[in-house]
């Protein structure tokens, strides 16, 4: 199962037939495994990693540190839920260190992101404070290096 997931994580477009050949499993085994993984939310969804800079799409990303007061019984989960339900919050993580929640916020302008932080995030009851870091440049996304990498040439024939 893990092998199938690893293949799909790297390339979601790999067909069940290709996966079957690569893993030495039967086509029906692979289809069953994928169906099961989709059913139990092991596979959350299939998406594409895009370099939006290439098409001139303005996107503003910010990593927001959020310091919160944990609540009785629910700890950080309740406040995390309040935050992750906003579509602007692309990713939400509980982290160790000097702050508690790391929230990746995406908007189309800086104002939009700033507005979200100041009007939605910061005023939440248990939020003690926020620090917003705007992303200036993306070098690597989801394991993919964004710049064009030179591919060294190999000698085409070698015993």
């Amino acid at each position: 199962m893990k092998e199938i997931l690893r293949i799909l994580e790297r390339d979601a477009r790999t067909t069940p037939q290709q996966i079957a050949t690569r893993t030495g499993k039967s086509l029906s085994q692979v289809k069953r495994a994928i169906k099961k993984a989709e059913g139990d939310r092991t596979i959350l969804k299939y998406k594409t990693v895009i370099n939006w800079d290439r098409v001139g799409e303005e996107q503003v990303w910010a990593l927001v540190e959020v310091k919160v007061v944990p609540q009785r019984d629910v700890g950080f989960d309740a406040i995390a839920e309040r935050i992750y339900r906003f579509p602007e919050a692309r990713s939400v993580y509980l982290v160790s260190g000097t702050y508690d929640l790391a929230v990746l916020v995406v908007g189309s302008t800086m104002q939009e992101v700033a507005g979200f932080v100041s009007q939605k995030l910061a005023p939440l009851e248990s939020v003690q404070g926020t620090v917003t870091h705007f992303l200036l440049k993306r070098y690597k996304e989801d394991g993919e290096i964004l710049g064009v990498e030179e591919r060294p040439k190999r000698v085409p024939l070698m015993p």
């Binding site: 060294p152 190999r154 000698v155 085409p156 024939l157 070698m158 015993p159």
Partner: peptide, 28 residues
């Protein structure tokens, strides 16, 4: 002499060749 020497000469003048002829990893 190595039997594949002359293939090098052929290869040198060709474009778009896919090589399954190497003896090394393609990973850096």
């Amino acid at each position: 002499p190595s039997g594949i020497r002359r293939f090098f000469d052929l290869l040198a003048s060709m474009e778009g060749v896919i090589s399954l002829g190497v003896g090394e990893p393609d990973f850096v």
